[in-house]
């Protein structure tokens, strides 16, 4: 997949504009930043189990009505 430019997450439906994105919050807190960096380190492992053809897989996951 082609890398896309990083954008701020959209906030549809939110009534206020706030600067407290979770990523920004992570940066503000040393402990949380550490945890997030640890998470970055297991992304490679997650890459190996992630279904290969994401676009087709997600498109194909169609459910029938439920409760």
């Amino acid at each position: 997949m082609a890398a896309q430019p990083q954008k701020q997450p959209q906030r549809p439906g939110g009534e206020e504009e706030t600067g407290t994105e979770s990523a920004a919050q992570l940066k503000a807190n040393p402990q949380a930043t550490e945890r997030a960096e640890e998470l970055d380190s297991i992304l490679d492992e997650i890459d190996t189990v992630l279904e290969a053809n994401a676009e087709e897989f997600v498109k194909g996951f169609v459910q029938k009505g439920g409760q």
Partner: peptide, 17 residues
């Protein structure tokens, strides 16, 4: 947190598959 990590690493937009 997982999604944000991927967004940081791969520069993904929210409509990414």
């Amino acid at each position: 947190q997982l999604l944000e990590s991927y967004r940081r690493r791969d520069g993904l937009d929210w409509d990414s598959a």
